[in-house]
Computed example of a mutant assay.
Amino acid sequence: MPVLLKIDSSVDGAPSRTRRLTAGLAESWRSRGHDYTVVTRDLHRDPPPVMVASAQHWPERLRDGAQLDPALEAAQSSAIAELLAADAVVIGVPMYNYAMPATLKAWIDLVHVPGVTAPFDVESRPLAGRPAVLVAARGGTDDDGGFAHALGSLELTIGSGLGMHVRTITTSRTLADRVPALGEQLAEDELETALAQARALGATL
Rank of each mutant, 00 (worst) to 15 (best):
T40N: 09
T40H: 14
R41I: 01
R41H: 06
L43T: 12
H44T: 15
H44G: 04
H44F: 15
H44L: 06
R45L: 15
R45Y: 02
P47S: 11
P47C: 11
P47W: 01
V50D: 06
V50K: 01
A53P: 06
S54K: 11
S54G: 04
A55P: 03
Q56Y: 01
W58G: 00
P59F: 13
E60K: 13
E60A: 15
E60P: 03
L62T: 02
L62H: 13
L62Y: 13
R63L: 11
R63C: 09
D64V: 03
D64Q: 14
G65R: 14
G65H: 12
Q67H: 07
Q67F: 00
L68R: 03
P70M: 00
P70G: 01
L72M: 09
A74I: 00
A74K: 01
A75L: 03
Q76I: 01
Q76H: 01
S77L: 08
A79D: 15
A81P: 11
A81R: 14
A81G: 11
E82M: 08
E82G: 08
L83K: 02
L83V: 09
L83Q: 02
L84D: 06
L84H: 04
L84P: 02
L84T: 05
L84C: 06
A85Q: 11
A86Y: 09
D87V: 04
A88Y: 04
V89C: 04
V89E: 08
V90N: 09
I91E: 09
I91K: 00
G92V: 13
V93G: 08
M95L: 12
N97V: 13
Y98W: 13
M100H: 05
A102I: 05
A102N: 04
T103H: 09
T103I: 03
L104Y: 09
L104D: 05
K105I: 08
A106I: 09
A106Y: 01
A106T: 13
I108N: 04
I108E: 11
L110C: 07
L110M: 14
L110P: 03
V111D: 12
H112F: 12
V113S: 11
V113T: 15
V113C: 14
G115F: 10
T117G: 11
A118Y: 07
A118D: 10
A118C: 11
A118F: 07
A118T: 15
P119K: 12
P119M: 08
F120Y: 15
